Simulated scan of single mutants.
Amino acid sequence: MRCWAEINIDNLYENIKELEKIILKEKIMAVIKANAYGHGITEICKALIKIGIKNFAVATVEEALKIRQINSEVTILILGPIENEYMSKILDRNIYFMITDFEEIEYIEKKGINVDVFLKIDTGMGRVGFQEDEIPELIEKLKNCKYVNATGVFSHFSSSDSDEDYTKLQEKRFKEISENIMKEIKSVKYRHILNSFGSLKYHDSEYDFVRTGIILYGGVTEEETLPYKFKPVMSLYAKISHIKKLHKDSFISYGNTYMAKKGDTVATVSIGYADGVRRDLSNKGYVYYKGHRCNIIGRVCMDQLMMLIPEELAESAKKGDVVEFFGKNINIVEVADLCNTISYEILCGISSRVPRVYK
C-alpha cells in the first residue's frame, strides 16, 4: 500500500473505558456519522456493539439503514433532517428521527404515519429546531396529534469547548424547555444535550443519553480533556517512493513556492490532497520519520508530496520507508491547527481511496 489509515480498535476501547469514568455505558450514544468520522462506520459499529454499546447517532437515513443491517436491536437516532418521503420507509426499522418544524408535524398527520420521534429544540445553535417562543404552540399541536408520538427531546451545544457562559445559558434554556414539554406531553421520556466536550464539563446533569463524537476517536489533546486521557484511534501513514540529493538549487513542486538548496535530500511521499492531506500543509506542515519531524516542502500535490530529509538521516533514508502524518507522534489537532480547521474535518477528509487497516 502506498498509504493507509491505521485504525486502532484497542484505543477505541480504551476511550470507552475513559468515558465510563464520566458516564454510565448505557448512556453513551456513539456518534458514528460521516463514516464514523472517517474511521469506517461498519467496523466501528461492530466493535462498539461487541463491548456493549447500544445507542448510536448518525446524520442520514442511509447511515441508519447501514447500522440496522449490522444489528437489529440497537437504538439509532438520525441527527440530521430527513426528507419527508423517508419517514414512512424507516418505520419498521425502529429508527428514530427528529422533528424540527411544524411543517413536518403536519406532513406526518396528513399522511397518517404512526411514528415515534425526537423533538429538536434550538437553544442557541441556530441551525435547526423549534425556537423557544414556538414551544407553547408545539405543545398544543402535540396534544392534538393522532400519529406523531414524541418520545424524546434534545438540543445541541454550539460552543461547549470554548464558551462556558454560553454553554451554561444553552443548558439552562434546554432544562426549562424540556421540563415544560415533559410535564405537558407524557409520551416524552428521553432528553439529551451533552456532546463530547459537554460530557466532560457537565456530566453531573441528569440526561438519558450523552452523544460522544470526537473524544470517542481521540481527536483531541490531553490539555483539552484533563483529567481524562483519550487515545487517537486513527493514524495516517504513507511510504517514501523516491529520494534524491539535489545537484543544484532547485524549485520543489507546483508554483515554485519552495527553493531547495544544493546538497538537500528530498523525498517524495505517496500521498496527496486527493487522499486527504490538506494543501494548506504546503511549506508549513511536517511528518514524523525515524524520530524526526521533517518539513513538507513545496505544494502538496494530488497524489504525492515532498519532504526534506534532515542531514543526519540522508544516508539511511530509503524508498519504502514509512512516514506518519498524524497518530502516536503527531497529534491530529496540531495538523488541524496548521490548516486553520478542526480535527473533525481532517479525520472526515481522509478519502475512500485510503485503505483502512484495523488492528
Rank of each mutant, 00 (worst) to 15 (best):
E134Y: 06
V333A: 03
A274L: 15
K290A: 09
I105W: 01
T341Y: 03
Y37C: 04
V128N: 06
I271L: 07
E83T: 03
V323R: 08
A336F: 08
L236D: 06
L347E: 01
E315H: 12
K201N: 15
S178C: 02
V210F: 14
I70C: 10
T100I: 15
I78G: 11
T221W: 12
V148K: 01
K248Y: 10
F102A: 03
K262T: 02
G129A: 13
A267K: 03
C3H: 01
M1E: 09
E315W: 05
E223A: 12
M1A: 14
N35K: 04
Y344L: 15
G327M: 07
V287K: 00
V128I: 15
F197D: 00
K172M: 09
E14M: 14
P310V: 13
K21F: 02
H39A: 15
E140Q: 13
E222I: 03
G80A: 08
I82D: 00
K319M: 02
V277G: 06
M234K: 12
N180M: 14
G291R: 04
K168Y: 10
A30D: 10
Y207P: 04
V322W: 10
G219W: 01
H156F: 07
G320Q: 02
H39S: 14
K290V: 00
M259F: 07
Y254G: 02
L119R: 05
L313M: 13
S196E: 05
N15I: 10
S187P: 09
G152Y: 06
I32T: 14
I135L: 12
F56V: 12
L236I: 08
G276F: 02
E184F: 04
K359F: 08
D321H: 13
D163P: 05
I32L: 10
E85Y: 15
P81H: 12
L91Y: 08
V300D: 02
F56D: 06
L281N: 11
H292K: 15
S282N: 04
D92N: 13
E312A: 09
V128K: 00
I215C: 07
Y166V: 00
I215V: 15
K239H: 09
I252A: 12
L200M: 07
S352I: 00
A317C: 13
D275F: 06
Y358I: 13
I90M: 11
G349V: 11
Y358D: 11
G219K: 00
I296T: 08
Q131C: 03
Y13K: 14
I53L: 12
I177M: 14
L119T: 02
H247D: 13
M98D: 03
F251V: 01
I28V: 15
I297H: 09
E104R: 13
T60C: 04
N35T: 02
R353W: 08
S351A: 13
A317Q: 11
K111T: 01
A150T: 06
D10C: 00
V128W: 07
C339R: 10
I271E: 07
Y147E: 03
T75A: 07
I332H: 07
Y166Q: 13
S241F: 04
G213M: 10
R356A: 05
